[in-house]
Design a protein around this nucleic acid. Structure first.
Length: 606
DNA sequence: CTCCGATGAT
């Protein structure tokens, strides 16, 4: 009769477990220990037990069993440590290694330890496993995951037989290293593709900033791949949702949600978590919250997602109350929880509360502050205009300030028109990340605001000599499931005439109700009149005008911009929301703005 | 036994 370990509700005393396992030496140890690690979510008792067993019944079978168990639950350091311990005890019966090497290589791959991986590779050769299919796939995977694509390729070519896993391993390694073309090439050359092949491509596209390719690949898989019997699984769905989130493709996200429900994949908690994030990033906090409420039990990632969602939408009170709910639910926060919480305080101007959480995070919540948290607090102080305190905090940091820290200072200096500290921050940034165009643009914009055109020219020269290119601003909006993209000053659009007509009428209407265009956001040294015109053609305005023209009254407009929203546009959109009686949700690189009845959810604090 | 894996700030 098959013996089973007790469930966690009846967690055995250590002695019982020990007696139980030592009394049954013929039991399938791997399965038993594996089950125990999973059920108790802890390897502590197993580890202690193992140490006793190894002194009473030392055998390579026991080592292999535990190595396998640790590898399968992702405790890779333990996996590798046990292997070397085993060798040092003189236990190396080769025939047990058949199943061990793939696990060791998985551990090396997971930890990105290419040197250790090479050692294991040598052992594989030494024990004569170089022609084994699983060892071969595992080696390809190990080298590919560690970024050693040439070695991976050589091993792949040398395999006497290649199954679909070897192809998949190589493809996902290419994607991880950003070698999209190689991945595409191999994917096309495959004779047989399984669900992992498709998912590797989809997640690879999503993670390499090509959300549209990820989405079309998902479509192709669902329609074109359906014929060959490959259906998306929960990993596929979980991987494609960030692509919807990235491109703010709400309609497509809803369709995928619907698909997931129809095949029962929406019961998977990782899928549900990805749905929360997708809805939040597509601008629909209501649906995000709805998915969050349906998810039971909620893990730390789900809580983090909801907290961060509120933070990015500028809902400070909700950010905090969700965090407090999480604590009450006895879920241990992690470092991401605090980046969400602190940035939420920052976006909502809750300076004192944010500082209190920062002080409590280590003592009360046992989360050690990292440089990201300092960046959030520096942002919190700087945004509120407390630049001096921000500088003092930077001086007291226990680690080197990162680019994000100085980046927060620079952005706030622009907001508060502090050229002196801004120049200092920019100087640091030019050393820390000389290739980041954004910093030059930001400083240049500050010089422009101060009318220092010769400094603007100087910086422009620096940017040119470094060979950096300015990112063109663009905005897009989704109508009937199709995205419509606009560049600043776009005149090529089919409806350009109507769009410009609508926008040209705006200044008059606005001036009549007391609005003054803020030309400091037009950053070229040209006449005031021209500056006004430049402003009227910013991509976010074009996208909104297009939305007004093509949706029925009352429809919420959702616009996404690839850069930070412009200040003049911000005022104009507030105005538009009132005269056209529309709710307008704008997502920029940093956060969401909800415009309604002449005001914005950010309270002009951004 | 190997191949696909969600949440963060600036």
């Amino acid at each position: 009769m098959e013996h089973t370990l007790p469930t966690p509700r009846q967690t055995p005393s250590y002695l019982n477990l020990f007696t139980y396992l030592t009394a049954n030496p013929s039991l399938k140890l791997s399965r038993q220990l594996h089950a125990h690690i999973i059920l108790t979510h802890s390897s502590v008792s197993v580890h202690a037990l193992f140490n006793h067993l190894i002194h009473t019944h030392p055998s390579s079978l026991l080592f292999n069993a535990v190595i396998r168990a640790y590898a399968q639950v992702g405790h890779y350091q333990q996996t590798l440590k046990l292997y070397s311990q085993m060798l040092s005890m003189g236990l190396c019966r080769p025939h047990y290694f058949t199943f061990t090497f793939p696990f060791l290589l998985k551990a090396c791959a997971g930890l990105s330890l290419v040197q250790t991986g090479k050692c294991v590779h040598a052992h594989c050769l030494g024990f004569g496993f170089q022609r084994d299919l699983y060892v071969g796939s595992s080696l390809v995977n190990m080298y590919a995951k560690c970024g050693e694509l040439a070695d991976a390729r050589d091993l792949f070519d040398e395999m006497p037989v290649r199954d679909v896993s070897a192809w998949n391993a190589f493809i996902s390694g290419c994607m991880r290293s950003g070698m999209i073309r190689w991945a595409e090439d191999f994917f096309r050359r495959m004779e047989r593709r399984n669900v992992l092949s498709w998912t590797a491509m989809i997640s690879g596209y999503a993670q390499n900033g090509l959300p549209n390719k990820a989405l079309s690949m998902f479509e192709e898989m669902s329609i074109g791949g359906g014929g060959s019997g490959v259906r998306p699984n929960w990993v596929t769905v979980m991987s494609v949702l960030p692509a919807c989130a990235h491109s703010a493709a709400l309609e497509q996200g809803k369709r995928i949600h619907h698909y997931a429900s129809s095949v029962g994949l929406d019961r998977n908690s990782s899928v549900q978590t990805a749905l929360i994030a997708m809805y939040a990033k597509c601008g629909s906090l209501v649906e995000a919250r709805h998915s969050f409420d349906k998810l039971v039990p909620k893990g730390v990632v789900a809580w983090n997602t909801m907290i961060t969602a509120y933070a990015s939408h500028g809902k400070g009170a909700e950010t905090i109350s969700t965090f407090e709910d999480m604590i009450r639910a006895k879920v241990q926060p992690d470092f991401i929880t605090f980046t969400g919480l602190l940035s939420g305080c920052s976006h909502s101007g809750l300076v004192e509360i944010g500082l209190r959480y920062f002080n409590d995070m280590e003592q009360v919540y046992s989360v050690e502050p990292r440089v990201e948290h300092y960046a959030c607090v520096v942002d919190l102080l700087s945004r509120a205009g407390r630049l001096q305190e921000a500088k003092e905090l930077i001086d007291q940091m226990p680690m080197q300030p990162s680019a994000s820290v100085w980046g927060a200072v620079l952005a706030a200096c622009r907001m508060h028109k502090n050229l002196e500290i801004g120049e200092r921050a920019a100087k640091e940034l030019f050393v820390l990340e000389p290739e980041n165009i954004g910093n030059y643009v930001l400083l240049s914009n500050m010089y422009a605001e101060f009318g220092k055109w010769e400094e603007v020219d100087k910086l422009r020269g620096v940017v040119k000599s470094l060979g950096l290119k300015k990112k063109p601003g663009c905005s897009w909006t989704e109508i009937n499931g199709r995205a419509h993209l606009f560049l600043g000053g776009d005149v090529l659009h089919q409806q350009a005439k109507e769009i410009y007509k609508l926008l040209e009428a705006l200044p008059k209407q606005m001036k009549a109700s007391g609005y003054v265009p803020d030309t400091k956001f037009a950053l070229h040294d040209v006449s005031e009149e021209e500056k006004e015109h430049n402003l009227s053609t910013h991509s976010e305005k074009l996208a909104i005008a297009f939305g007004l023209l093509n949706t029925s009254p009352g429809t919420v407009l959702r616009v996404t911009k690839n850069l930070r929203i412009c200040g003049d546009c911000h005022s104009a959109i507030k105005f538009i929301s009132r005269i056209y009686d529309r709710e307008i949700v704008v997502r920029d690189v940093n956060r969401f703005h909800h415009f309604q009845d002449g005001s914005c959810s950010c309270g002009d604090y951004w």
